Computed example of a mutant assay.
Amino acid sequence: MKLIGSLASPYVRKARIVLAEKKLDYTFVLENVWAPDTHIGQSNPLGKVPCLVMEDGSALIDSRVIVEYLDTLTPVCKLLPAGGNGRERADIKNWEALADGILDAGVLMRLERVQRPPEQQNEAWVARQREKVTLGLAALAARLGEQAYCAGKNYTLADVAVGCALGWLAFRFPEIDWRSDHPSLARLFDKLSERQSFKDTVPQA
């Protein structure tokens, strides 16, 4: 398998962490989707990463699709419950959707700042995205409470997704002090950061 992505993308990081946790072999191909000479369109017509290219040349797009597929490839470190428990599985995917939604809003904030000149930036738009981040983080913290992991006692895909969201916010928006505002999230993130899969995928510019 071949994973196309960047070192800064939290969505790519999610896929890289799952690949590491599942102990799956793959080739990591760096791609800058913003570069004029990017080739991402050859694998993903939407021009986004991550993109997982399989042995037969077919490709999976979107991190949520990719990681769910990867979890089926080996029983090592199961990150989603077996299909029989639909409610538990949906709950974990809901954690992932919330974490990814926070990232989506954060990415829109960043693009507004770095891709538009100051006089063209829409402050109301940025404020709206910032509110999504703020409310999303509060919801994550409230759901986590004093639990060891997002889904309770076991490490799951929910923790991977939340850890990637928190790590990216710390990387791109250090002024958002989620650690002080939500000590439970800080505790979880510190624990996740001790895992080798997280250590090996720290975001880089």
Rank of each mutant, 00 (worst) to 15 (best):
N94A: 12
N32W: 14
A141S: 10
L7R: 05
S184R: 10
E119V: 05
G145N: 08
A97K: 04
K78V: 15
L169W: 05
P203M: 08
M54L: 09
F173M: 08
S58T: 06
D159C: 02
G101F: 02
D25P: 01
S58I: 10
T201M: 07
L80F: 12
Y69M: 06
A170E: 06
P183F: 01
K22D: 05
L24I: 04
G83H: 12
A139K: 12
A99Y: 03
G152F: 11
C150Q: 03
S58V: 12
G5M: 01
W125E: 07
A97S: 07
L169K: 02
S9L: 03
E123K: 04
G83I: 04
A205Y: 11
A99C: 05
D91I: 09
T201V: 07
E68S: 13
Y149E: 14
C77A: 10
K78G: 07
V12Q: 00
Y26L: 01
N44C: 01
R128E: 15
K23L: 15
S180F: 04
I17P: 00
Q121D: 05
G167N: 02
A8Y: 09
M54N: 08
P174G: 02
G163M: 02
E31Q: 06
S197L: 01
Q204R: 14
Q121P: 04
E131I: 06
